[in-house]
């Protein structure tokens, strides 16, 4: 009996082991809290840094487009407009492309291995760093589209969006490169949502004589809609915050223009361009712009998460 007990030296949990257990738990607790701390830290720091500019220009900052470090006048309208226009228009193009691709991947028009290759290609596209896409855009994409833009201006110049002579770097190029970057996001989320639609719904629809595309449009897509919407919102958040490729190709001009063929600005490209060299009240104004960008992307993101929660697991 006694011999046996000796074999199990650790039968009793010693104080020290209990303490390790508690320390371990609390350490992980602190580490996970760090996420919240960093998040609030970011919001607070950016907010306080922008305070000087905020108290000086108030909401006028959002609607004036004078950006003049010499006269110390700052208004971010051009950049805000650019952010919204480039992200929304690129999304408008990406949604049908991405959903169409997702349908291609989830239906059986072609053998499975072809679809898998397409799927991996699109996902690998997401892995290409944005700065590399920017480089590619400058040296390959821009020359490729040059003639087309001239044509666009010539024949559609009466539309305000194409009303200016095409500049070498312009907002439309930024929109196109954004489409390339958003495509993987929308495609992969749309694909996952389509895959989650229960098979029985497709059966039900085919079973009463609906054709393939009637089934897709009337049954499958509506059932996947909330997931796709969430993906679209995530892509929107991404588009608004996307920096490098856009900065490299948009032309970076604070002169406001309706035309997409003129150089433009987005909040993030303005930050990338000016932050390193700014001083004085310009810094605070840049923080103010950063704060606006952050709020925009937070709102979009939180809305996306809400959507996912609200509509998931309906069946």
């Amino acid at each position: 009996m006694e011999e046996k007990l000796i074999l199990f030296k650790n039968r009793k949990r010693f104080g020290i082991e209990k303490n390790i257990d508690i320390i371990f738990k609390n350490t992980t607790l602190v580490l996970s809290s760090l996420v919240a701390i960093v998040l609030f830290g970011i919001i607070l720091v950016v907010f306080f840094q922008s305070f000087e500019s905020f108290s000086r220009y108030g909401l006028n900052f959002l609607v004036t487009s004078e950006w003049n470090p010499v006269k110390d006048e700052y208004g971010a309208f051009t950049a805000i407009y650019g952010t919204l226009v480039t992200s929304l228009l690129s999304l408008l193009i990406t949604i049908p492309l991405g959903v169409g691709t997702a349908i291609f991947i989830t239906e059986d028009f072609v053998p499975k291995f072809v679809r898998e290759i397409v799927g991996s290609f699109v996902e690998l596209l997401a892995a290409i760093p944005s700065v590399v896409l920017g480089l590619w855009a400058i040296f390959v994409m821009e020359p490729f589209f040059r003639e087309f833009f001239v044509f666009l201006h010539k024949f559609f110049g009466w539309i305000p969006l194409f009303s200016s002579e095409p500049a070498g770097r312009n907002s439309l190029l930024a929109i196109i490169i954004l489409v390339v970057m958003l495509l993987p996001i929308v495609t992969s989320i749309a694909r996952d949502s389509l895959n989650q639609v229960p098979k029985k719904l497709r059966n039900a629809s085919y079973g009463i004589g609906a054709s393939r595309w009637k089934t897709i449009f009337s049954v499958i897509l509506p059932a996947a809609l909330s997931g796709i919407m969430a993906g679209v919102l995530l892509a929107l958040g991404r588009a608004m915050g996307e920096t490098m490729a856009v900065t490299m190709i948009i032309g970076n001009s604070n002169v406001f223009s309706w035309s997409l063929l003129s150089p433009g600005y987005t909040i993030s490209s303005m930050l990338a361009n000016q932050f390193g060299e700014a001083d004085g009240s310009q810094v605070s104004s840049l923080f103010y712009a950063a704060f606006v960008l952050m709020i925009l992307s937070l709102v979009v993101n939180i809305f996306a998460q809400w959507l996912v929660k609200k509509f998931s697991l309906k069946y």
Binding site: V35, V38, L39, G41, I42, V45, V46, L234, G237, R238, M240, G241, E242, T243, S268, L271, A272, F275, L286, F287, A290, L293, M294, S297, L298, V300, N301, I302, A304, Q305
Partner: peptide, 13 residues
């Protein structure tokens, strides 16, 4: 939410 914060904001911070 943190995953959705634009990467340039991390730099600003």
């Amino acid at each position: 939410v943190l995953a959705g914060v634009p990467s340039i904001i991390a730099g600003v911070f």
